[in-house]
Structures are given as C-alpha cells and as structure tokens.
Write a protein that binds this DNA or RNA. Structure first.
Lengths: 152, 152
DNA sequence: TTATAAATAATAATCATTATCGATTGACAC
DNA sequence: GTGTCAATCGATAATGATTATTATTTATAA
C-alpha cells in the first residue's frame, strides 16, 4: 500500500502536482476501499475520519485530478452519482462491472474479455479505441442462488 | 414511422398507459432523431415545436415512462446529462456506442459482438445478464482521417 | 352530465457538482 | 528570517439537471 502511494506520489510530481495531506488522505481512502465503488460524497465522509478539516470541494478537486491522471476511473451506473474506482496498476484496460438489479451489488471483472471485440471495432469501424466502459445489469450469483428465477 | 408509433401506442395501452398528445409528440421527436442521442432538454426543445404548451416535467415523465417500458434506453456518457436512445425494434440487445474524444460524435454499433463474452460471464461469474452497456471512447474515423495520430 | 382517476403545466425543491474568493501553505530569493 | 509568488485549500454560493408538489385540465365511463 505504501508502495502504491509512493508511486502515485511520483506520478503526481511528474505532472507538477503535489501530494498534499488532503490528497494523500483521499488516496488512502481509495486504496483502503478498492473493492467498493464510492461516490464523491462517500469518499468525503471517509476522508473526514482521517482529516476532519477537509472540505467537500477539495475531495471533488482531488478526484477530478486523479481521474485526469488515470489513477482512478470515473464511472456512472445511472443512479445519479459519479463513482470512483482505482485503476489496477499496470492494467492495459479498465475493468468491467456486474451490477445486480436485485440487491444493487457491484462486482468487478478484471479479465479483459474484449480483445476480439476491440479488434473488430478498430478494423470495421476504423475507430482508434482509447478506453472503454462495459457494464452488465442482471442478477448476481448471490441473488440468483436465493430464489429460482425461471421467468424470461 | 406511423407503424412504429402505432406499436408503441399498443405497448402503452397494454400497460394501461395512454398515448396522450404530449407523449405522442415526444415519441415522434425520438423517432425523427433516432440517430442522435438527445438529452431531456434537447427533447424538450424539439417537442416544443410540435406542442408549444408542453412542460419540461412532462417530457421528463414521458422519457422515464418510455425507459421503464424499454422503448428507449437511458444512457450516460459522463457529461452530466442523461441521454435517451430508441431501442431498435426486435433487437435482442441494446446497441453499443463509439464516443469520439476529439469531436464528441457518438456513433452506434448495432451488431451484437458480445455473444461470446456474455456466455463467459454467465457461466464463470454465475451472473444472469438482463442488459448491458458498452461504450468505447477513442478517435472516430472522421477525426482519424484528418490528422495522423501516431502517438501511443 | 357528472364522478373519478390519470395526466398535465407551472414552478418550487432537491441534490450533485462546480465556481468563487479570501486564507493558507510551501518553495525559493534575498 | 522575511517577502513573494503560485498552488492549494475551506467555506460557501451558484449552477444545472432532475424530481416533487399542487392546482388544473382532460379523458373515460356510469
């Protein structure tokens, strides 16, 4: 964790940004909640535990900065808030998501899966892919197990 | 076009909803701008030409209703507004999008492409897929042609 | 026609996000 | 150390998309 923080610090410095205490506290929260998909408000509340004097605007500014540097990805599941997700270090592509329409859980798929599809899109549509967003909506394995869903 | 409108009318009636003049005007705008990805505000302004007395809230309500009935899909490209896209009649799956980071153009991919991927996800993650969202961000064929992009 | 529920227009309210602005901080020159 | 400058910050106002409210209108059917 300290290693990743150190690398993020270097990444910021390479772009002439500083890792201020507020930014560090924000990054730490993201590192500690890597599995979650926190909204800016969520992050704000968690950061306040570490740095009670931090302002909401600073959290927004920091998340925006981290997104710009591709350290986090800003995603939207259609519920009216943006969520922030740490990009896997060294991952060539942004991971995918499984959103359960029963319980609301969001699971991640780290596997690429889109290799062939991207090849087709680049060739047939002459489109140079820089990033992607893939989200499946459906019933997760937990809800799926709880009750038989034979309809449709 | 009238045929599709008629079918949408039937679809509404089957759920005990009426195709009021305001709703009809809204659907007509969507049919006439099938290629576009209009925001609620966009739709509102266009509908006002047909039905000047319509209220913004009615457009929102109508779009929400149409989304609920799966006649349109609500999508979000991360620019702060929801956009509404008519679902292709008879299409098993929602189509995909290519968003150009140069010019902002949004193109559609009607081909499925995800068949194999969905099979893997359903099997390996035990996730019952009901819907999906796939968007590629990159350089479209128009911008791609204008200047050589050899970086990266 | 009259009762009733659905739908509407106008507009107020909400909520996430962004902009503003004065204060603070840290790096560096002197 | 002190001054200067730019980056950053906290507080909060402003914005803008969306939703809720409410009184009114419309459609439907007895």
């Amino acid at each position: 964790m300290e290693k990743r923080l150190e690398r993020i610090k270097k990444h910021l410095h390479s772009q002439s940004y500083k890792l201020t205490p507020q930014r560090e506290a924000t990054v730490r929260v993201l590192l500690e909640h890597e599995e979650d998909h926190l909204s800016a408000e969520d992050v704000y509340l968690l950061v306040k535990d570490k740095a009670p004097e931090i302002g909401l605007a600073t959290v927004y500014r920091t998340l925006e900065l981290l997104a710009e540097l591709k350290i986090v990805d800003k995603i939207n599941f259609g519920d009216g808030v943006s969520r922030f997700d740490l990009r896997q270090e060294g991952a060539a592509h942004f991971h995918h998501h499984l959103v359960c329409i029963e319980c609301g859980a969001v699971d991640e798929i780290q596997e690429d899966l889109l290799g062939d599809v991207e090849e087709i899109v680049e060739r047939d549509w002459n489109f140079k892919i820089k990033d992607h967003r893939l989200t499946f909506h459906g019933i997760c394995h937990r809800c799926h197990g709880n009750k038989e869903t034979n309809n449709e």
